[in-house]
Every structure is written in C-alpha cells, then in structure tokens.
C-alpha cells in the first residue's frame, strides 16, 4: 500500500525519510547492538578456511582454503548425513508446523475458561523438560519389555519390536516426541495472534449464521495467516540445523543409518581434540544452505501471496 498512487520519486523518498526521523533514531539502538555484537565478530568466518589452533591468532593461523569443505563433503558418510538431516527437518516441519496452529485454533474456541487455561498451562510445561530426561522418557515408554507405549502397540499388532533401534521408526519417534514437547509452547504465538483478531468480526460472522467451524476458516485463519506464513518461511531457515543432543542420546548402531545427522558427526569428530576449523567449515556449509533455502521460499511466498519477509 503506498501513500500516493503513482511513481515514487526521490523527492518523495527524501520527504519520507525526514518525516520518519524519529523511527531512525529508534532503530539506531538495536541496529548498533547488532552491528557491534553480530558484525563485529563476523571476521571469524575465515576460521573455516584456515587450520586454526587457539594458540594462534585468527589471522596468524595457516590458510587451508577449501580443505575442510572438501574433507566434509567427500567423506564416505556425507550422503547419508545430508539425507538424514534434511529428511528429519522436512518431516519435522510437515508434522510439527500445523499441530500448534490447529491446537491454538481449538483453544481459542473453547468457552470454558478454566479448562482452556489448564490445557494451555499443561501443554506449555513439557518445553522445560531437559533433553536428557526427554530421551529417558522416550526410551522408557518404548522399551519393548516394560514400556507402556510399546506394550500397548504390541497388544494391538502382536509384534514385539525394539522401536528405538529400528531405522525406519527413528524419524517418526524423533519428530513426534518433539511435537509433543513443543506443541504448547509453539502455540503461544498463534494464541497471541488470535487475540489480536477484531472481535466484532466474530460477532458479525455469528450474526451471519456462521458455524464455529466456518468462523475458524473464514475469520480466524485468514487473520493469522500472515503470522503463519512468516513463521513457515522462517522455519526453512533452520533445515540444516538439526541439533545434536537429542539425536546423540537416541542413536545406536542399529538405527545409525537413519539417525546420523551432520551435527552428531561433527560432535564425534570434535570429541578428541578441538576441531575448530572443521566444525566452522561445516557450520558455514549449513548456513549457506539455510540462507539459500530461506531466500528461495521467501521468493515463492512473495509470488504467491502478499506476506513475505522482505
């Protein structure tokens, strides 16, 4: 939406800058913080191209060029690592993205305030369970011998399987336990966005004879669509960044084929001695792909709708 229809001219632009001088002042503070603390250390990216040792200065250590990248991409398990990393991320996205939204929409429609608040509070809590305990819980519930979940599934299917060790179940277990844990916390932003929806729209809809379901589809959902789209785009910016801790605790030799991801591999490489340059190179590799994905998805979003990051 532009103020004046027609071409923007430099004159108009200059006028606008003057008009919003206060905004520039405001923006200066966080901008300064970002420039100092995020761009200040940015030169450290070169570590990925050197053979860095802590007792050398960053500039003083020897150049290695693309050696670490080549070593990483050429390693025998690279295809598997890529496949698992991307696979887990995409699966997590597809499964995990809609759930908090649906949950928030349902919560929003709940007239019983006490029930609503209880559900919100209870689902918010699992976010604080540490990864170690989370994995202990998963292992405990899926223990073929004694786990509740495992026994329940066994009684239904008649088969006793060690779910944790089965390669084909790893992603499912990993992703859905993550959904379980973060659903309530992730829904908060949508609940907040729904709170920003004009209530008179709801009442108008009701008067028009819309059922609750129609209300959700035609009022709520469109109202929070920009938030949804933005968050969806942003989630593509972390496809390569599957964290190592939870997977490391859950993986074993049998499920390694589907559970080994880039971060767990880098972690194992770094166990014996600090491999700064190697992990920096892998990190940079991941970042470039993440950034590229984000830009691409953003472009698509821009073509398709009106919401995009920039």
């Amino acid at each position: 939406m532009t103020l004046a229809s027609g071409k923007r001219t430099n004159q108009m632009r200059g006028k606008r800058i003057k008009k919003h001088w206060q905004l520039y002042l405001l923006f200066l503070v966080p901008l300064a913080s970002v420039l100092i603390f995020s761009y200040g250390p940015m030169y450290g990216i070169v570590i990925a191209f050197k053979n860095y040792v802590v007792s050398d200065s960053i500039w003083g250590s020897k150049w290695a060029g693309l050696k670490h990248f080549r070593e990483f991409i050429g390693s025998y398990n690279f295809p598997r690592l890529m496949k698992n990393t991307v696979g887990i991320s995409i699966y997590g996205l597809l499964a995990g993205f809609p759930v908090p939204i649906i949950f928030a929409l349902l919560i929003n429609e709940c007239p019983n305030v006490r029930f609503k608040k209880t559900v919100q509070m209870v689902t918010y809590a699992p976010h604080f369970i540490s990864t170690v305990v989370m994995v202990s819980l998963i292992v405990m519930f899926l223990n073929p011998r004694s786990g509740i979940l495992a026994k329940a599934i066994t009684s239904m299917t008649g088969q006793r399987i060690d779910y944790i060790s089965a390669p084909k179940f790893f992603k499912t277990i990993y992703v859905w336990s993550g959904v379980w844990q973060s659903m309530g916390f992730s829904a908060v932003i949508y609940i907040a966005a729904l709170a920003g929806v004009d209530a008179s729209l709801h009442e108008a809809a009701v008067v028009d004879g819309a059922s609750k379901l129609q209300k959700i589809c035609h009022v709520d959902l469109p109202s929070i669509m920009p938030t949804i789209v933005i968050l969806f785009i942003l989630s593509f910016g972390s496809v390569m960044s599957v964290g190592y801790e939870k997977i490391y605790l859950m993986q074993n030799q049998l499920n390694m084929a589907t559970s080994d991801v880039i971060s767990t591999f880098v972690y194992r490489m770094g166990l014996l001695q600090a491999q700064y340059s190697f992990s920096a190179a892998v990190g940079l590799f991941n970042s470039v792909i993440n950034a590229a994905l984000l830009v691409i998805v953003n472009q698509i979003a821009r073509r398709v709708g009106e919401t995009s990051l920039w």
Partner: peptide, 25 residues
Amino acid sequence: TFVGRGVFMGILSFTMFFGGGLIPF
C-alpha cells in the same frame, strides 16, 4: 513508508545465518 526497511531487514536477517563463532565473539 519507512525508507530502507528492506535494507535494514537484510542486515538483520544476515546475522541469523552467519556469525564469526565463539572465539571472536
């Protein structure tokens, strides 16, 4: 109508992906 918001957005977003690492920080 905030002129430069695209540029500023870019400056900020870049830092979501790229950083210098623990030691320079």
